[in-house]
Design a protein around this nucleic acid. Structure first.
Lengths: 334, 334
DNA sequence: CAAATCAGCGGAAGCGTTTCCGCACGCATG
DNA sequence: CATGCGTGCGGAAACGCTTCCGCTGATTTG
């Protein structure tokens, strides 16, 4: 059943039905209610694809993790679960991009933007997104919200949410130092990572020298990478008594390696993770980790998007969300 | 840029461009290639919403878990990751339904079907889906694939993939019995569950009586539910020496409780999970669990869907995928 | 060599909505 | 009572694509 047939059946014009649905035209409350009631009675649902065409919008936002394998990123998944609700109330469905590899991803996203499969992007990323790509989004008048640790400003149609990684890392550094740790390691797949920089700074402020040899680059972000990294760390002359891992996954790997090596946690070694992936906190022992409040993050991102919808050219201040340490059972004193 | 303008620029008619894109009309290879080349050169991408409207299809399939909180179901998530690729090659994008509660879910799905937001559903479920709901899908001529442990047959537009839970459960029962276990428990949130029935049968065949008191109903499917269930189990007069949990999540809960109670796994207690959730196998100790091959599952589901597209009325045989035991470190001998 | 066939392309209708604009009617105003 | 205005609704165009059908010109066939 289409709007024309439905309108005929209830004895009004298609225009009237449309106005009743969208609330856009001038319509008496009586008529509007009558139409809505009849819609339920007769089970008429407007064809979404037709309104998509005429309105030039798809009512879908895509969520994607732009750095690594998108599908594998549990943090993004966590954000997805939190943001689907708020987005819905803004009138958007969420399209979770599960593209297997990031090689095809940019091409895919471009495609989706140009073909109007989605109205915009919510990008979770650690690295800096090429301005060229953002410019392209902006030029195509697609709304985007970038979630990262640096603001994106002065770009029409693009807003940003900044995760303040510093706060959580500082708390982590404090906890470790308070517990007497002085030889501290860091595990990541990329040492230019913001977290490593902030961690070094935080330790320095506390008077602890963060030695370069304690920076361990993991091959990737998998559990095994974390294990290998810890093994390398511990095989040194004076091994660290504590490590911070860039993600909970790497931390789990480290925990596993520690167990294999006969090290007790937190007795012989303290471990702190990052992201507080709820999927993983299932694991024992409870991992002390740095949490990003995904619920808050989702709300802020949605608010930014909402502002963007009102005025894409307004130069919005980036949203900010702090990180904080969640203390569980993997940190002890030396 | 639209097809009309693009066609004008390259000096052909819109019809020719459309034929070149879809491959549907009669077009000389020369012209077709020329048009495709120009598309890349000028960066023309057809408006998806327009073809959606005219073709009466959305090119989107929804994946959803119909029993419990959809968003929380890690197994469905695992299926999602595997099926997104195959679906793409069938020309469908995947829409992962992350609806927070199942109360609204049926309504939401109906809405999506009627408004043609999606072309069909891939339903992961444990319980039996109401035939009324399936009939509705079928009547709306939307393609669906039901993934469960019972086949759906004789329903146009609906295919099914049956997970053969028996094989995995049998293997699990065998392993436990071979290791001398005789007092064996089962943890689930629903005791009419197929797995519990099959498990009882398998044990009976091996000459082990599956005592009713060892059936423990958990409140839900969360970690804590698993913990509580195990505590209840172990507080009995002659506690079990091994348990099978309906999901890995419950199993993790059981492991945690065991640790709290000072029971060593697998020394004092053996634990077997179900679903082999890759997210969780990160946890130590490696959980012995029953795996459903999600990659195979995804392929089969996609094949069924593909057959359905060719002839929705063909009464397809359900696809079948076996389960099998993955032995890790949580089963020992008494 | 005339007629029939067919490949290759274009014109135009149609998919189901929304929205602009126009029309009729009722009411207040001068 | 005549004019003006605002409210409530309908007609029709437009969104950008696909496909049916018709047209032209080249090739084949008796």
């Amino acid at each position: 059943m289409n709007i024309k047939e439905f309108a005929r059946q209830i004895g009004v014009s298609p225009t009237t039905v449309s106005s009743a649905i969208t609330g856009n035209g001038r319509l008496s409350p009586t008529t509007r209610e009558m139409v809505r009631r009849k819609m339920k009675e007769l089970g008429f649902t407007p064809n979404l694809n037709a309104r998509r065409l005429v309105n030039g919008r798809s009512y879908v936002m895509a969520l994607c993790h732009v750095d690594q394998e998108a599908a594998a990123d549990l943090f993004t998944l966590q954000v997805a679960r939190e943001i689907v609700g708020p987005l819905k109330s803004l009138g958007f469905d969420l399209w979770l991009n599960l593209a297997p590899d990031s090689a095809q991803e940019h091409a895919l996203l471009r495609q989706m933007i140009k073909s109007r499969t989605v109205d915009g992007l919510i990008l979770v990323c650690e690295q800096i997104i090429p301005r060229k790509f953002l410019r392209e989004l902006s030029n195509n008048k697609r709304w985007s919200v970038v979630i990262s640790h640096v603001p994106v400003e002065g770009m029409p149609f693009i807003g940003s949410v900044v995760m303040n990684l510093r706060t959580g890392v500082q708390e982590a550094a404090q906890l470790l130092v308070q517990n007497g740790h002085r030889r501290i390691g860091f595990i990541d797949s990329d040492l230019r990572d913001e977290v490593s920089v902030l961690f070094a700074e935080a330790l320095a402020e506390l008077g602890v020298k963060f030695e370069l040899r304690n920076y361990i680059t993991a091959e990737g972000r998998n559990v095994e990478d974390g294990s290998k990294a810890l093994e390398t760390l511990m095989s040194q002359h004076e091994p660290p008594t504590a490590v911070l891992a860039r993600t909970d996954i790497l931390a789990i790997g480290a925990l596993r390696a520690a167990r294999r090596m006969g090290l007790s946690v937190p007795g012989d070694l303290s471990v702190i993770g990052h992201d507080d992936l709820s999927f993983l906190t299932l694991a024992e022992p409870g991992l002390t980790t740095i949490r990003i409040d995904c619920t808050g993050l989702a709300e802020i991102a949605t608010r930014i998007l909402s502002d963007l919808l009102i005025d894409p050219n307004a130069d919005l201040a980036p949203g900010i969300i702090d990180t904080s340490l969640i203390v569980r059972q993997t940190v002890g004193h030396v």
